[in-house]
Structure formats: C-alpha cells, structure tokens
C-alpha cells in the first residue's frame, strides 16, 4: 500500500512539473524514478521510450505504466498512470474557463518564457545522461548519430527508425557472433 502511494505521489509530481509534454518529462523522471526511488535504471527508461515510440498513447502515460507495473504489477501500472495524469486534469478543469484570459497577462507570459528556458537547460542534462547509458561503443555511437541525422533532417517517423534499428541491430549481433565463432575455430 505504501509503495502504491509513493508511486502515485512521484508520478503526480512528474505530471505537475512536466512542461511541454513528451520527452520534457525526462528530467523529472530521472530525478524521481532513477535517482530518488531507484525504481528503474536509465537504460530501462530508454527502453520504455523506444517502445513508447511504436505503441499507442502518450509517452508519459506509457512510461508511467511500465514503471508502475515493474514495482506492483497491473495495479501499480494503473496507479502510476493515474498519478501522472491527475495534475493536468485538475489544472485544466479548474482553469478551463479562464485559461485564455490568464495567458494574456504579461507576468504569466514572462514566467512561462523563463520556465521554457529552464526546461531547455534540464533537457541538456537529461540528454547527456541518456547518451551515457545508451552509447557504449562504436556501433551504438553510429546508431545515435544516424538516428539524430534522420530525425533532424529527414524528419522520418520514429516508428520507422525504431523498426529499422531493431532489424539492423539483430543482424549486426548475429554477424558479430558468427565472426567470433569463426575466429575461435
């Protein structure tokens, strides 16, 4: 019961302080899930993101379900997911009628401009940590570089990138093991 409450609390915080959606949750996720509670490693978060790119739904929801399931099976997955969406639901419901007006105030605009600069800074560190956990050798460095290039310049669909990378990697590993086998003989 205590762990379920912790899951809800942590994911509630993540939902409440993720500005911009999607990958912008990574800094909060890293702090709450990886560093503070050690519910998952950076590698696992990375795995969840890869799966989230090809499965239906929002990345934040998918990741919450994965982390929750890992701790407390189905009920954990559901509680963590409800935790991550609750702040948005409350905020939007409370503010729905006045949201358009609020964002007309200069002070609110200024605060959000400052927040988005902070989000950029946080993302630099998140990217750095993710890179450290994913880029281990020449092959993974090439994959990261290729994936960045096709994402930035060709704007290829993430699903395509994930599927192609998976196939190429399995072939690469197969050839690698065959070559090693031949060398041993």
């Amino acid at each position: 019961m205590k762990e379920l409450a912790e899951l809800f609390k942590s994911f509630f915080m993540i939902g409440a302080f993720t500005f911009g959606g999607g990958y912008a949750m990574l800094p909060m996720l890293e702090k709450e899930v990886v560093t503070k509670h050690k519910w998952a490693t950076m590698e696992e978060i990375s795995n969840y993101f890869a799966i989230g790119q090809c499965t239906p739904g929002i990345i934040a929801v998918n990741t919450a379900t994965f982390v929750g399931y890992k701790q407390k099976k189905n009920i954990g997955g559901i509680i963590a997911t409800l935790g991550v969406v609750t702040p948005s639901v409350i905020i939007i419901l409370v503010l729905a009628g006045i949201l358009d007006i609020i964002f007309e105030y200069q002070i609110v605009k200024s605060a959000f401009a400052g927040i988005s600069v902070a989000v950029c800074a946080l993302l630099v560190q998140a990217l750095w940590k993710l890179a450290k956990s994913g880029v281990k050798d020449v092959y993974t460095a090439i994959v990261a570089l290729m994936s960045a290039i096709v994402s930035v310049f060709l704007k290829l669909s993430p699903i395509l990138i994930v599927v192609v990378t998976a196939i190429v990697t399995v072939c690469y590993k197969y050839i690698q093991s065959r070559v090693k086998g031949v060398n041993k003989q």
């Binding site: 993710l130 956990s133 994913g134 994936s147 960045a148 994402s151 930035v152 993430p158 990138i161 590993k173």
Partner: peptide
C-alpha cells in the same frame, strides 16, 4: 540485442526533439 541498438536510437530522436524545443 534489440534494446542495445534501440537505446542509442532514442538518444538520436531525443536530440532532434531537444533541438526543436
């Protein structure tokens, strides 16, 4: 093996979204 390759691919995709942010 699959995730060994997918993790750096995620890094590349994240790089692209960080750029647009």
């Amino acid at each position: 093996d699959v995730f060994y390759g997918l993790r750096p691919a995620v890094v590349g995709m994240l790089f692209a979204s960080v750029l647009s942010v």
